[in-house]
Design a protein around this nucleic acid. Structure first.
Lengths: 156, 156
DNA sequence: CTTGATGAATGTACTCTACAACCAATAGAG
DNA sequence: CTCTATTGGTTGTAGAGTACATTCATCAAG
């Protein structure tokens, strides 16, 4: 059902059809993945919701970041981030420290518990991914990773 | 950022490190994609929510499927599907027909309007993906598509 | 005809999200 | 320095999407 001659550049119509098929597949599979992601994440770590986990991870990586940075990076509304942070703070996973240079700003840091939770959650997530990708060759893993990077970075 | 310690042959550490890096990237990028998917979908077609679109598409492809089939396929609760179908029916996009052979069952079919909406939405989605992937070679598209298929099909 | 399984709907509650309105602090223009 | 616009953040409100538990109707089998 797919074209079998990827290197034959003589027929642009065939090439277009090939592109269309591939793009359709990418579209369908990415959509399917997105649909299932939340359920999968909930199964992997019922304790820490997906978004909270993600924000906590970012706070850990970019120690001292601000709520606005998180909102910009994840394309979320300020209010959403604010509430997520409230949750994380209530759980004792994140600290909001006032910035001495700018009293509007809250500098975010993971607490001890936050770092520990993050480590545990990341380990379990990583294990799940490892298992799922166990029979992939390293070359395939590397290529898949680079495609995903390229795709995500092509965001306008 | 890659490990600089080429271990001696005693342990398979080097190969493992490569795998770990790649798997980490895949994990991170897929997570990032999942988080943004909803917002992106909303931007692409504000009229038809992502989930409804997906269900409608499945109903169209598998004409005559039942709510239970949808729930199983998308790992959703029956109640969720039921409510989504209620929405789709209210919008006039889906018909629930009683099954003469089993009066518990409702057989699902897209309406004319449903099929039309689906066509339009699919076209706009496809165009968005085409644009975003415009500078990818066909080979890369094909490989990316096959990786996604492989990944999604490895679901346990 | 009971009993248990199955397809679906409903009650309830929670997460995630956006938009709008608001407050507090800063930065510039005069 | 004062007034205003901007920026960082919170809160009120609302809505989508989801799950779990319960209930209802129907079917299948003893």
């Amino acid at each position: 059902m797919t074209t079998q001659h990827p290197h034959d550049a003589q027929t642009p119509r065939t090439a277009e059809a090939g592109r269309t098929t591939a793009v359709d597949t990418i579209e369908r599979e990415l959509t399917a993945f997105a649909r299932r992601a939340r359920a999968t994440a909930a199964r992997l770590h019922p304790d820490l919701p997906l978004v909270s986990y993600t924000l906590l991870a970012h706070i850990h990586d970019q120690q001292g970041c601000r709520a606005t940075d998180l909102a910009a990076h994840y394309m979320l509304d300020k209010s959403t981030v604010s509430r997520q942070l409230t949750t994380l703070e209530k759980l004792g996973l994140v600290e909001r420290r006032p910035d001495p240079d700018d009293h509007r700003v809250q500098v975010l840091h993971p607490t001890e518990a936050g770092a520990a939770t993050l480590t545990a959650t990341h380990a379990s997530r990583h294990a799940a991914y490892q298992e799922r990708l166990a029979d992939w060759s390293e070359d395939d893993l590397t290529r898949f990773a680079s495609y995903l990077l390229r795709y995500n970075n092509s965001r306008t």
